[in-house]
């Protein structure tokens, strides 16, 4: 059983590390949500349901709703921009493809905070975007671009766009574009062949792109913190406030537990859908 030994030997370090720093901490979040807080900012003794009950207030529901719609809108806009971009890069001549791809990746390699900051100064009341819009007459001098849910969506789209383009490009690059020609040949108009042939052909890439944007969007914290203001707060901000301002760890845990469940939902949905798709394939394969 040497093979088995080697397997354990090379797997054990990461298994142990991730158990210690991922599995146990995640379970701990759920446990601490049922603990009372102590006055020193730590975790008290005994068990309580008060923190869970406190989540049902209208204020939290509003925040949860806002978190959801901002994330959904961000995902939708990212997809809308990434589909043509991924398509174009995949259809570009070989030597251009890598260059364009690099152009998409470079913003990802720049500091995340710096990118958010760049938008903060762009949207600043004295910043160029505001001045430009004012000059055209689109906004009045009192309008605020910053500290608004729309600003949160804008900057989130900016941050997540490269992550959306990459999986779509990867799927489009493997796509056989002769299928689009075949569809056109059979009478489909450009948009019909896009919707009926191209989109189903890259559906895996689209699913990945959606997950890659939607899940981190749900947990956004810095972007609403720096450009959202009170009207753009999301669950992430509330968690941070409970930790850093109120020093109420059980409350933060309860909020985090809700976020964990919210993140799991789309993942489970995708897994179930994929399994269903596979099963129907197998059944058809067994048919004579």
């Amino acid at each position: 059983m040497r093979r088995r030994q080697t397997e354990w030997l090379v797997s054990l370090p990461t298994l142990a590390w991730l158990t210690l720093f991922v599995v146990i901490p995640t379970l701990l979040v759920f446990v601490i949500a049922f603990r009372p807080a102590n006055p020193y900012g730590g975790i008290g003794r005994g068990w309580t349901l008060d923190t869970i009950r406190a989540l049902a207030t209208p204020n939290y529901l509003l925040i949860a709703w806002r978190t959801l719609w901002i994330s959904l809108l961000t995902t939708a806009i990212c997809l809308l921009l990434a589909l043509p971009a991924g398509y174009t890069i995949a259809r570009a001549p070989e030597r251009w493809r890598n260059r364009l791809l690099l152009c998409v990746i470079i913003p990802f390699w720049t500091s995340f905070l710096v990118r958010v900051f760049a938008w903060r100064s762009l949207l600043h009341p004295e910043g160029p975007v505001k001045k430009a819009l004012e000059a055209i007459g689109l906004v009045g001098p009192e309008a605020t671009l910053l500290y608004h849910p729309a600003a949160v969506v804008l900057v989130m789209v900016y941050t997540f766009l490269p992550f959306t383009i990459l999986p779509i490009y990867a799927a489009a690059e493997k796509f056989d574009f002769r299928l689009v020609e075949a569809a056109r040949d059979l009478g489909a108009r450009p948009f019909q062949s896009f919707r009926k042939i191209f989109l189903p052909g890259i559906r895996r890439g689209v699913v990945t792109a959606v997950l890659v944007v939607f899940i981190p969007a749900l947990g956004s914290y810095i972007i609403p913190d720096l450009v959202g203001g009170p009207s753009g707060e999301m669950i992430g901000n509330k968690i941070a406030q409970r930790v850093f301002s109120d020093r109420n760890l059980p409350h933060a845990s309860a909020l985090s537990a809700v976020l964990v469940l919210a993140v799991l939902a789309p993942l489970v949905a995708v897994l179930v859908l994929q399994r269903k798709g596979k099963k129907s394939d197998i059944i058809m394969g067994e048919a004579p």
């Binding site: 901490p25 701990l28 979040v29 899940i215 914290y221 941070a240 930790v243 760890l249």
Partner: peptide, 14 residues
Amino acid sequence: VVPEILMGISLLMT
């Protein structure tokens, strides 16, 4: 896949 904030808070708790 887990949002960073969840990792941050759970490690802090631990």
